[in-house]
């Protein structure tokens, strides 16, 4: 039974690593700021999964409490990020991260 537990924990951690990597790749590849925000959320969720897994493995509740705080941070980040995106799009609909060229150079 314990062997199964071990494998499952490893599985959780590897799954989280894969989700994190996919999210990171998405941030680098995608141009739409909204999709980039979603990819950042994906990365944060991968970390949440890691934290809960460590919490189980260490038998320590702190990991789960950290997830709560990450949820708050993610919510705050999304609110502010979407606010900025809306403010930009009001000025220029359909803006992508590449259209934002004023600063390039």
């Amino acid at each position: 039974m314990n062997v199964d537990t071990i494998d499952l924990n490893a599985g959780y951690l590897v799954l989280a690593a894969m989700l994190f990597a996919i999210g990171a790749a998405g941030v680098l590849v995608r141009r739409n700021p909204l999709v980039i925000v979603m990819c950042v959320e994906l990365m944060l969720n991968a970390v949440n999964l890691t934290l809960v897994t460590f919490s189980t493995m260490l038998n320590d509740i702190a990991g789960q409490i950290m997830v709560l705080f990450v949820l708050v941070v993610a919510a705050a980040e999304v609110v502010v990020g979407l606010g900025i995106i809306v403010a930009i799009s009001r000025r220029r609909p359909g803006a992508t991260a590449d259209d934002i060229r004023v600063l390039r150079g």
Binding site: F20, G23, A24, V27, P33, I36, V37, V40, M43, L44, V47, V73, E77, V80, G81, I84, I85, I88, A97, I100, L103
Partner: peptide, 12 residues
């Protein structure tokens, strides 16, 4: 926006 996206990325 740029600061937000890269900042969020690094926070992760």
């Amino acid at each position: 926006l740029k600061y937000f996206i890269l900042g969020g990325f690094s926070s992760a």
